[in-house]
Structure formats: C-alpha cells, structure tokens
C-alpha cells in the first residue's frame, strides 16, 4: 500500500504535462497568434510585475488588448518572472489594461498559466486578496469582449482573476483547479505525496471543466507551438471576437453574468 500511494493517475499526468517546462508559455502564444505586440508596463501605483505581461497587438485587422501570465523558459527568466505567480501589482496592471481596453472598445484576450497568486509577505502587505477581488468584480462588468485561454496551469483564484470571461478555452493538457493537488492531499491526508489521488478527486482536467460548464472549448495540442497551430488558433480567436463584438455591451455583460450565475443555482 505504501508504494501504491505514489502511483500517478491520469489526472495527475495532466498536471505534470501542464507544468511541463517545454510547453509554449504565455508570450509564445502572444507572438504566435498576434502580430506587432507592443508591451505596456506597470500598474501606475507600485511597480511592474514581470509575471504578468500585457499590451496591445494586432489580430489581422483588429487591435486587441493581450494579457499573458508568463512563466519564462530559462532559469534566469523564470526567476525574473517569479515562475508566473503574480503579485498584487500584476493583477492591478492587468486591471489597468482591461479598463483601457474597455475605454477604447478593444477586446481582451488573456493567456492563463500560473500555479497561483504568489503567497508572500509583500503580496499580503499590498493586498493580494483585494487585488484579485477587484479584478473579479471589474471583469464581470467589463463592457468589452473577454476571452481567456488556459495554456498550462490554472491555479485557483490567481487564474480566475484573469478569466471571468465571455468564454474560457483550455488546451487539451491544461488544468484548472481550486487548489493544487499537493495542497489538497496535505489537507486531506496530511501527505502531499498523495497528490495523484487528490488530482483525480478534484476533477481538474479540461474535459472535467468542459462538463461542468467552466470551460467552453478544448483546444487539441496537435502541432503545439507550430506555425500551423498558432494560425488555427488565430482564426478561432478572430471568429470568436468578431461574434462577441457584434453584441451590444448590455447583452455581452448580461450573458457573462449568466455564465457565472449558473454555477450552483439549485435543483
């Protein structure tokens, strides 16, 4: 029995795949899908969080506000980007860019890949909880289309803060979870090595999220990172943004409210 507990599960295999260091990261998607990305820095209050990269880019003939959680590739870059775990100033930068997008009637596309919001002293001092909460509130009422694409890890509130969206898409191997399987196993069984079992119970795979209505589309990973892969994704995003942009703001925001309102409405 002692050995069996460390055996992986299909769910945990996905978690490993989602965390895998060789996957394209947020900025790879930005560069692959869009053209002429111009990065805009800073939250205008405290600093510039490198775990969150944002700016404006072209998608064919549309200017789009793009926000990506970025983990980085090299050891040096990963450390600079805090392994993709934002501080409050990262969420506030994202919020600033979302509000800017609303003002100029640009759609917003977010690429989500994070183990979660950073649990640190400075993060708490600067109001990590408040920063995430303000993003949830603002996104729910944002009068411009929002599309969120999970490309790897979707770690709890830290991922949700960029995905109160009109649609949420997930890569085939992306995961989305209320708690890390390790954290869950520690709480449940006081044993983080039972994470594979916890992963199975958490229903954190893209297919699970699709069945629950949390995710709207699963993106196959065939040719992941190739030119053809990004081209297909560009077209999918373009069509979706065109469709969402045709709605008036009232209808758009109303549908977004209904999308999240359905979770737990009762028998």
């Amino acid at each position: 029995m002692a050995k069996a507990k460390n055996k992986s599960t299909p769910a945990y295999d996905r978690v490993r795949a989602a965390r895998g260091g060789k996957r394209p990261t947020g900025l790879d998607y930005v560069k692959g899908v869009f053209s002429d990305f111009f990065e805009l820095h800073g939250d205008r209050a405290f600093s510039d969080d490198a775990a969150v990269a944002g700016g404006i880019a072209w998608l064919y003939d549309k200017p789009v506000t793009v926000i990506a959680l970025e983990k980085g590739h090299s050891t040096k870059e990963r450390s600079k980007r805090n392994f993709g775990s934002p501080h409050p100033e990262g969420y506030r930068k994202a919020l600033r860019l979302m509000k800017q997008a609303e003002k100029f009637h640009r759609p917003v596309v977010c690429f989500v890949d994070t183990a979660g919001a950073y649990p640190g002293v400075g993060a708490e001092e600067r109001g990590q909880g408040a920063a995430i909460a303000e993003n949830l509130l603002a996104l729910s009422g944002l009068r411009t289309p929002v599309l969120s694409i999970f490309i790897g890890e979707g770690g709890s509130g830290g991922a949700l803060a960029l995905s109160v969206a009109d649609e949420v898409w997930m890569l085939e191997n992306a995961v989305y979870s209320v708690i890390s399987p390790e954290g869950c196993a520690s709480i449940l069984w006081k044993d983080a090595s039972k994470a594979p079992e916890a992963a199975a119970f958490l229903r954190l795979q893209a297919q699970d999220a699709l069945e629950m209505g949390v995710c709207d589309r699963i993106l196959p990973e065939k040719g992941l990172g190739s030119r053809a892969f990004y081209r297909d994704l560009s077209r999918l995003i373009y069509d979706k943004l065109t469709e969402l942009s045709a709605l008036d703001a009232e209808a758009l925001v109303g549908a977004r409210y209904a999308r999240f309102r359905q979770f737990g409405t009762g028998a």
Partner: peptide, 17 residues
C-alpha cells in the same frame, strides 16, 4: 472543486451589480 472556485466569480459579479 471548480464549482467552489466559480462562487468567487459569481458573488463578485453580484456585488458589481
């Protein structure tokens, strides 16, 4: 699981209105 996470969005959206 995820349904509890979605409550964060749901409640915040209601606060927004």
């Amino acid at each position: 699981g995820l349904i509890s996470l979605m409550q964060m969005a749901k409640t915040s959206a209601a606060v927004q209105r």
